[in-house]
């Protein structure tokens, strides 16, 4: 399946992209996450949550979506 990955905040600098298309077999979000951590080494040091089709989900959720977003916390005010 093809999935669009969106990066927010400082993850844009970590991955050098705002959006990319990834092809992956069906499975859990964790398998996609492993693939992304391998592709973008800097992601390992970052804190972020994952949203699938605009809903924050845990890594053991089944991949179902067309869109995955990686969302870091912001502290600025």
């Amino acid at each position: 399946m093809e999935i669009t990955i969106k990066y927010f905040g400082q993850l844009v600098e970590t991955t050098n992209t705002t959006e990319e298309l990834i092809t992956i077999e069906k499975g859990q979000i964790s398998s996609l996450l492993n693939l992304l951590l391998n592709k973008h080494k800097g992601l390992k040091q970052k804190d972020f949550q994952i949203a699938q089709n605009q809903e924050i989900v845990s890594v053991d959720t089944e991949l179902s979506g067309a869109e995955i977003a990686l969302l870091p916390p912001f502290s600025g005010g």
Partner: peptide, 30 residues
């Protein structure tokens, strides 16, 4: 509300038994 460079986040937490900031990000980052 929180900001980073050109991006912002807004939510209302703990409203009528709704989720809190920790439900989104359980612990402070490293």
């Amino acid at each position: 509300g929180a900001i980073y460079k050109f991006e912002g986040q807004v939510s209302v937490f703990n409203y009528q038994n709704g989720p809190t900031y920790r439900c989104l990000f359980p612990n402070p980052p490293q």
